[in-house]
């Protein structure tokens, strides 16, 4: 193993780590605001990537129909709940009119000839709204339930989404075109253009998130909810709104990571889960609370994965997931009081 290989493994690890970092941030965010351990995060990644692949292939993305279905379901849930009926007009607009309008637009567009930027926007426009819809349908009715119940629901949603993924995308995977095919030479090290895109996009996203939480009213409201749910409610921040907003952000991050990962690897309908779980290992390193620790943990996971692939590729996943045990042990040793379950 020479310096060049170390550098290349490092580059590979950091690239994957950057994607895990994005997912880990979303997981920490969702957990902090809603107490949901968001297992389906990975599905947004896969759906985003596969929608993009369909667009590149010039096909009408089947996820649009899923969006329409989700919208109708959300509208139905709204219509059957007292709070939902109060804003039924807005619900119709977002859950029925918007998906149908999008479907209509896509029907008319020459999908095969769109520029990459437009495809990215369309993929976002299709998949991201399903985030808040998901919150409305699956989590909002039980927002006050114990963490454990929310977790089981989360796993159930994940399963249903994987099943739907197989249904709409089929068992085969797809890759998408890299955003940049340039190669840069840095000394003896070749750096792929797409690697830079991934790193750059991750940094931009993280900075954007920071600015959102630090500078905007909605961001501050979310932070307030994360710190003290009841307090935030008393201050007039609706937990339902905070939840939907969080899921919106999580979906944005999920889809963007999917777009970033699809040129590097073949994405399958069920790829999201394992990638998402590695984000989880990172998030757990951060105790599901600290953003910088989670991001650092993600890079660690990426590097560990890369180097263990080199040394013992058959045991790579064993090594990555067993990392969680020393992490938990360390957490367990540093916390020593009896905790009351919520």
């Amino acid at each position: 193993m020479d310096a060049e290989i170390i550098a290349m493994l490092g580059q590979d690890g950091v690239t994957n780590g950057a994607i895990y970092a994005l997912l880990a941030l979303a997981l920490v965010l969702v957990f902090a605001v809603t107490r949901v351990i968001f297992i389906p995060q990975g599905e947004f990644l896969a759906w985003g990537a596969l929608t993009m692949a369909a667009l590149e292939g010039g096909q009408f993305p089947a996820t649009v129909w899923l969006l329409v279905g989700c919208g109708v379901l959300t509208l139905a849930v709204d219509a059957f709940s007292a709070t939902g009926r109060r804003n039924i007009g807005r619900s119709v607009l977002w859950n029925l009119a918007y998906p149908l309008a999008l479907a209509g637009l896509l029907w008319g567009l020459p999908i095969a000839e769109l520029p990459t930027a437009a495809r990215v926007l369309i993929a976002l426009a299709i998949v991201v709204p399903m985030g808040p819809m998901l919150y409305r349908v699956a989590f909002q009715p039980v927002a006050e339930a114990p963490v454990l119940v929310l977790l089981i629901i989360s796993v159930a949603v994940h399963l249903a989404m994987v099943g739907l993924g197989l249904l709409i995308f089929g068992p085969e995977g797809s890759r998408t075109q890299p955003f940049s095919e340039a190669q840069f030479e840095l000394g003896s090290l070749m750096i792929g253009g797409h690697t830079l895109v991934v790193l750059g996009a991750s940094v931009v996203l993280i900075v954007a998130l920071y600015l959102f939480f630090d500078r905007t009213l909605y961001g501050k409201a979310l932070r307030a909810t994360a710190i003290n749910r009841n307090g935030a409610r008393l201050m007039g921040i609706s937990p339902a709104l905070a939840g939907r907003l969080t899921f919106f952000l999580a979906a944005v991050i999920g889809v963007l990571s999917g777009l970033l990962v699809a040129p590097i690897t073949t994405v399958y309908y069920d790829s999201g889960f394992l990638i998402g779980l590695k984000g989880f290992v990172a998030a757990i390193i951060g105790g599901l609370a600290s953003y910088p620790l989670a991001a650092g943990g993600a890079i660690l996971v990426g590097l560990l994965e890369s180097f263990s692939s080199f040394w013992a590729s058959a045991f790579k996943d064993v090594i990555v997931f067993t990392l969680i045990i020393p992490v938990l042990m360390w957490r367990s040793l540093t916390s020593h009081h009896v905790e009351e379950e919520e």
Binding site: L277, F280, V281, I284, F321, I324, L328, S332, E339, E341
Partner: peptide, 23 residues
């Protein structure tokens, strides 16, 4: 390792080690 931590770490831990034992 996991039981002393608050409730949600155990399921996450079991998920991770469920995968690693499988492999």
């Amino acid at each position: 390792v996991t039981l002393k931590l608050s409730g949600h770490f155990l399921p996450l831990g079991t998920m991770a080690w469920g995968i690693s034992l499988y492999f």
